[in-house]
Design a protein around this nucleic acid. Structure first.
Length: 347
DNA sequence: AAGGCGGGGTA
DNA sequence: TACCCAGCCTT
């Protein structure tokens, strides 16, 4: 007699042999650990996250210590990881959970999605990995596995395609071992059903995968339609006083690098000395343009032109969002990656 | 539906 | 160099 192929059973059997069980956040998968790791892993690879996760959990071992922290401190531990709204939302959510849920992550999809920074997929990961409730996730791994398994064409960023994927992810859910199953989906996508060189010969889905049958597994998922990224310019005012301190400002919460510390910025390098007198009430004694840095974002390129401006400290204005720092002290702040790298080269 | 939002690994 | 990664939020 013949039996129909069971996706979940095959995946779970594969997971028992080849799945990942040693990742830091798997050692004690509390709701806090699962949530934190899921946020860090949004658009960020596992190998990058591991060190950040270990440092972050040493400093903030639980949701209450995170809730009590200053946002500045949280951002400092996120510095270099990017997508800083994740850190700001993480902090906000910790405070909400402590205030409204007695410090315990909620257990329903609706309550989780209502929290800042948690969408349907992250909520699904928390519900499955921490609470063992049956929900689908749809991260990059699952999108890749499922678009191949069903040979689904179209870009997964397209709403129609995404809806189809959610539907399929839900349909394939097993009624047992849900946490292992969700982890297995991610493991399959991350270690075997990879973007460039999928190891189809060792895949438990090989004989049931539509993309493999077509002979073009890497044709799925379809690529995002690309568009040109604009090149922008900015100038950094690297103010340096007689005590060898540099001046840093905290950026507004909204926009790029929100809440992080950086140099005062201007669009055009006109009349810098005059501007410094007007805005900061200081006199520049020496102005040295430094070689420009090229920084690449996902949506634009930024040419940064630093201007080293030697000046006297007294009388500097708008101190409410700016401060003088010794360079070695500044490195413990929440700094954008190019600012940190620039300051380190200064030592 | 489209765009904003980082930084780094990889081919 | 181009692509994309355990996505979410705003417009």
């Amino acid at each position: 007699m013949s039996t129909t192929f069971n996706f979940a059973d095959a995946l779970l059997n594969w997971y028992d042999q080849f799945g990942r069980k040693d990742l830091p956040w798997q050692q004690s998968p509390t709701p806090y650990h699962v949530w934190l790791s899921e946020i860090m892993l949004q658009q960020t690879q596992v190998t990058t996250v591991i060190d950040y996760y270990l440092r972050f959990t040493r400093r903030f071992p639980g949701i209450r210590s995170l809730a009590q922290a200053k946002q500045d401190d949280v951002l400092a531990y996120w510095s270099g990881l990017g997508y800083y709204a994740r850190a700001r939302n993480l902090h906000k959510t910790a405070q909400i959970v402590v205030a409204d849920f007695a410090g315990e992550m909620p257990k329903t999809l609706e309550q989780l999605i209502a929290l800042p920074g948690i969408g349907r997929s992250t909520a699904g990961a928390i519900l499955t990995l921490a609470y063992h409730q049956p929900f689908p996730i749809l991260d990059g791994n699952v999108k890749r596995v499922l678009t191949r398994f069903d040979a689904i064409s179209g870009w997964p960023g397209n709403k129609q395609v995404e809806n189809k994927l959610w539907q399929r992810a839900e349909q394939l859910l097993p009624n047992r071992r849900i946490a292992n199953y969700i982890q297995a989906q991610m493991d399959l996508g991350a270690t075997l059903c990879t973007r460039s060189k999928p190891d189809c010969q060792n895949c438990p889905m090989q004989h049931h995968c539509q993309a493999f049958a077509l002979g073009t597994p890497t044709a799925f998922p379809e690529k995002k339609p690309k568009k040109a990224v604009p090149q922008r310019q900015t100038h950094w005012l690297v103010l340096k006083n007689d005590q060898n301190e540099i001046y840093l400002e905290q950026r507004p919460q909204q926009g790029i690098w929100g809440g992080l510390w950086s140099f005062p910025e201007i669009d055009k390098a006109e009349d810098i000395d005059v501007l410094c007198r007007q805005r900061f009430h200081i006199n520049i004694t020496q102005h040295q343009p430094l070689p420009h840095l090229q920084h690449v974002f996902s949506h634009f390129k930024l040419a940064i032109h630093p201007h080293l401006l030697q000046c006297r400290a007294e009388g500097i204005a708008d101190k409410d969002n700016g401060n003088w720092y010794k360079i070695e002290d500044s490195l413990t702040l929440g700094l954008p990656a190019p600012v940190k790298s620039f300051l380190q080269s200064f030592l």
